[in-house]
Design a protein around this nucleic acid. Structure first.
Lengths: 198, 198
DNA sequence: ACCCTTAGTGGACACTGTCCACATTAGCTC
DNA sequence: GAGCTAATGTGGACAGTGTCCACTAAGGGT
């Protein structure tokens, strides 16, 4: 039942973003009275938090799926570059194809903060976007593409650039630009990152 | 009165983000009955849209304020670099000091879209964040710092990097990191951008 | 057989955005 | 000045939301 409510919430988030994951509607989908949800979640925010991590997990899953499609031995410079590019592409594609889920993944309510659940501070056990990015950067160092002296902390500017592009072109001021322009901007960001590795 | 409602909305947005700009509360502040607002705004969304542009304008104003503090002739390479840095710093500082307004500036409702009001697509008459950034980049080209061949479209990756940093450290997964770490991440992004100009 | 935890129900409250009909008031025309 | 018109604000209502409270089954352990 808890899982059912979360699944319903994910569906609501997919088509309408975090605002659309409304408790009463989720219970309606499951076919139960609104208050029943309070046996499984303290708040609407607790339900929303679960939906958020589900959305974040789906993003991570899509990234790994794209990542495994890139051939080439670990440590190969060209393959390492392509893997980094795949990470960025998957991120941007997810934001574009699933705008609701993307917005939801980053709309975790203040109360139920990220803690270490999504590996924001450490790329722990589960595959997480930041963890995947770090692994790709480590491989780039190993492959001799990225200067080890520049490795420390570089995941943040790179993540920021990709995330900012997703945000600005998806829901931000650039959202009404024609599709071709949006793709161009995404490509500009990816090559900007690639250029800054040398 | 219209202005009063917008001002009240800005105050609500300042301490609570876009979600906090609730029509009834704004009318309460102005000291009028809820429905009176409908003589001046079609929707709550129309009020919110005005509040959003007000927030965006305040961001632009702070950026120009910081910008005028940078001495140095136009075309001087060092001054040009410092001006670009000031733009990024002001952006990040605004996001940190006024999280509510920052979030609101980018939460324009779908209906009342940006149009060309904030100069998203062209840095028109009024001073706008993107317009300021473009001017700074043009000066960097003029100063011989930035290769003219790399100038085209480079405002988007740069804007994205700064915006993404603001988002990730402000409301995103990194928001719970210690303050020192947040400043470090911001500095990393700014030097990342600076390095990528050469 | 009892009791106690769990899961779900029914009813209520405060709050929101929004619609409708009404009152007031300012300004204009005759 | 009298009266019409447009603008502005009021009062009351409705649906929808999150959330609290008291209540009712059902199931399992003693």
């Amino acid at each position: 039942m808890r899982a059912g409510l979360i699944a319903a919430g994910v569906e609501l988030a997919r088509s309408g973003g975090p605002e659309a994951v409304v408790l009463r509607e989720a219970t309606r989908i499951v076919g139960v009275v609104p208050n029943a949800a309070y046996r499984h979640f303290a708040d609407r925010d607790e339900l929303l938090a679960e939906v958020c991590t589900a959305a974040m997990n789906e993003l991570a899953d899509r990234m790994t799926a794209d990542l495994t499609r890139i051939r080439g031995k670990r440590g190969n410079p060209d393959a390492a570059r392509r893997r980094l590019g795949a990470i960025g592409s998957a991120y941007l594609r997810f934001a574009q194809e699933e705008p609701g889920l993307f917005a939801t993944a980053f709309a975790v309510p203040r109360r139920h903060s990220y803690a270490d659940r999504d590996g924001a501070t450490d790329g722990s056990i589960r595959s997480t976007p930041l963890g995947l990015l770090r692994a790709a950067l480590d491989e780039l160092v190993e492959a001799g593409v990225l200067d080890p002296q520049r490795r420390d902390g570089i995941e943040y500017p790179i993540w920021s650039a990709v995330h900012g592009t997703a945000e600005l072109t998806g829901q931000g001021p650039l959202r009404d630009a024609p599709d071709a322009e949006l793709r161009r901007i995404e490509a500009l960001t990816l090559t900007f990152i690639s250029n800054s590795l040398t």
